[in-house]
Design a protein around this nucleic acid. Structure first.
Lengths: 198, 198
DNA sequence: AAGGCCATACCGACTGGTTAGTATGTTGCC
DNA sequence: GGCAACATACTAACCAGTCGGTATGGCCTT
């Protein structure tokens, strides 16, 4: 179990998490040794095991952080102003944007989730499912009120769209030709177009 | 380097590859030991290293196999009969179908590619890019002849769609409520709808 | 047809290196 | 003096790959 870094004075705990995130994204969980993490953070193992219960724990913390962030934002957008079409578009663009802004987390998420211990894996999946369900209910709402065509199953659309989002980490480059905003807008457009009524 | 299993009498080599595929998909590359692979195949390490140069080599062989298969099929469909809309729909549905039929390979692909040695990783990426380019040129063709709207960038559409395809491995279950054909049809529909002109 | 020769296919013990995690200090603040 | 925040040294386990060895069967030569 992780004691959540005790908020006060735990700059070391945060530095450890940040360096771990960077290294996990760069080399993957298994290829990153605890020794490398503590060296990158300028401390020793004692410090790491003081704040985190295990290497696994560290990985779990990465997930928890990004999930909290995205869930919060989706809640705000889904419950906000505008037609369901507008809200879905905004939500879709936002998740793309924040995924790119936290590209390291995105990479780790989909490469290394299965390395988590079964119980932690289960916990993460449950959180993730709740997130997807919020997204899905937006689609259902649009189908009910006639904004979207009723052909596609909402849950399949969610898996379809988030597949694309999760894979950003494999091809998006910060120094590439496309800005995060451009990708966000196009992905959201593609989603909305695929739901538009004939 | 792998000597490709010498075609004749190498049932052992094939069994090793099959068991490795299964185990890599189940536990991931790093968490699968060479010892486990050879035990599952009912041989010993000597046999494995007789046919394959390294554990890495084995992983590379998995990729090579599925890439060959999919490239072949896409070539046939892209160069076949029908309007560009029909061909793209067929190609999209087909890649979903074969991805589900070879779900173990799909899982490994997306989870473990970055574990390959840099050179092999590069080779696989190059193959993959050629494959994506074939797909992209179908979209470009449709945009040129007015079948598809010209808004979205073809390369982004490809990344968008294949994100969804690669992620099948994380959520699709054979014993789930959806047949592979259903998913294939819906995914292809979603793609075509998102390209349809207003 | 018999004997020699050699390649292929595999065995299994061993090695050298790495790794997560632990046990036991040490320091400095309240 | 006591506890939080670390450091240091260590261990026990694991693992990819190696290497010397054996069994089998085909082919060439005489």
């Amino acid at each position: 179990m992780a004691h959540a870094p005790s908020s006060k004075s735990a700059a070391v705990a945060q530095r450890l998490l940040a360096e771990a995130t960077r290294l996990f994204a760069e080399r993957g969980f298994e290829r990153t040794s605890v020794q490398e993490i503590v060296e990158a953070a300028g401390v020793t193992k004692g410090a790491l095991y003081h704040y985190y219960g295990s290497k696994d724990d560290l990985l779990h913390e990465v997930y928890a952080r990004v999930l909290r962030l995205q869930t919060e934002r989706l809640q705000q957008i889904a419950g906000g102003e505008g037609t369901v079409g507008e809200r879905l578009h905004r939500a879709a663009a936002d998740v793309v944007l924040t995924s790119i802004e936290n590209l390291d987390d995105t990479k780790i998420f989909f490469r290394s989730m299965h390395q988590l211990s079964p119980e932690k894996n289960k916990a993460v999946r449950a959180d993730r499912r709740r997130y997807h369900e919020m997204f899905r209910s937006l689609i259902e709402e649009g189908q009910r009120d006639g904004t979207f065509r009723t052909g596609p199953r909402p849950d399949l659309v969610v898996d379809y769209f988030f597949g694309s989002v999760h894979h950003l980490g494999t091809w998006y480059r910060e120094d590439g030709p496309l800005s995060a905003e451009q990708v966000a807008a196009e992905f959201a457009d593609l989603l909305l177009y695929s739901l538009r009524r004939p």
